[in-house]
Simulated assay, not measured.
Amino acid sequence: MARAGLTAERVTIAGAELADEAGLDQVTMSQVARRLGVKDASLYSHVRGLEDLRGRIALLAADEKTIRIAEATAGRAGRDALVAFANAWRDYAREHPGRYLATQIPIRIDPELAANAPGPRRAIELTYGMLRGYGLAEPDLTDAVRLLRSTFHGFVALEAAGGFAHERSSQHSWVRALDALHTLLEHWPPSREGDS
């Protein structure tokens, strides 16, 4: 019998909070049960196991990050939209490092849960919408999405790991990187014959 008040959502939030505090690799069923004040077995009435829990954390984080990006970019275009998008991404990664990591590593997610989660789908729509503002169309849209994701994730991952040990602040480099991305997106190079 499931413990009163315990739900899949509460288990997921407890796991997400633990991931942010201690790291995603420290999230175990035992640690989450301890956090909720229940026996490990009680969790299995709500999540199938650790992989399911981590998948739920990833979907929660994708929803939260997407909402933040949507709010930041609403009514903006061009450079303003790019900067708002990037800053919302970076802020989320800094504030929720464990949840953010769950969105960036391969985790097997229940297809039914994934199908009903708006975050990942909405994130794609927001990204493509912003890039269409630069006049990009396929296949350039896909290439630009990959460039932005690589840049944003690479920057925040290196920053979180202390990888920018230089007297110039990482904030200055972040601003300049966004300036460079904006310039590149405005002057996107044409595809070359034979690109595949």
Rank of each mutant, 00 (worst) to 15 (best):
R3P: 09
A4T: 06
L6S: 07
L6F: 04
T7Y: 14
T7G: 03
R10A: 15
V11C: 01
V11F: 14
T12P: 14
G15E: 02
G15C: 11
D20M: 13
D20G: 07
A22W: 13
G23W: 08
L24R: 02
D25R: 13
T28F: 01
T28C: 03
T28H: 00
S30F: 01
R34S: 11
R34T: 10
G37C: 04
G37S: 14
G37Q: 02
V38A: 09
K39Y: 00
A41E: 09
S42D: 08
S42V: 01
Y44A: 07
H46R: 13
R48A: 15
G49C: 12
L50W: 02
E51V: 10
L53K: 03
G55M: 09
G55D: 04
G55C: 11
G55T: 12
R56N: 03
A58P: 10
A58M: 10
L60I: 06
L60C: 07
T66D: 00
I67K: 13
I67R: 15
I67D: 06
R68Y: 00
I69F: 04
A70N: 01
A72K: 03
T73Q: 04
T73E: 00
A74M: 07
A74E: 09
G75D: 14
G78R: 00
L82D: 08
A84W: 07
N87S: 05
R90M: 09
R90Q: 09
Y92I: 04
A93L: 07
R94V: 15
H96G: 02
H96K: 13
P97A: 12
R99Q: 14
Y100V: 01
A102W: 03
A102C: 05
Q104I: 02
Q104T: 15
Q104L: 07
I105K: 04
R108M: 02
I109M: 12
I109H: 13
D110R: 08
P111H: 04
E112N: 12
E112T: 14
N116Y: 08
P118S: 11
R121G: 05
R122I: 08
I124D: 15
Y128L: 12
G129P: 02
M130W: 00
L131M: 10
L131H: 00
R132T: 11
Y134T: 06
A137L: 13
E138C: 00
E138Q: 08
P139L: 10
P139I: 14
T142C: 02
D143T: 15
A144K: 00
V145C: 12
R146A: 10
L147K: 10
L148C: 06
L148K: 00
R149Q: 06
S150N: 09
T151S: 10
F152G: 10
F152K: 02
H153R: 12
H153F: 11
G154P: 04
G154V: 09
F155H: 12
F155Y: 09
F155R: 05
V156P: 05
V156C: 11
A160L: 15
A160H: 11
A160S: 15
A161G: 06
A161Y: 01
G162F: 06
H166S: 09
S169M: 01
S170W: 11
S170T: 10
S173C: 07
W174H: 05
V175R: 06
V175K: 06
A180F: 14
A180L: 07
A180E: 08
L181H: 06
L184Q: 12
L185I: 00
L185D: 15
E186H: 11
H187R: 11
W188N: 02
P189D: 04
S191D: 01
R192V: 09
R192Q: 14
E193R: 14
S196Q: 15
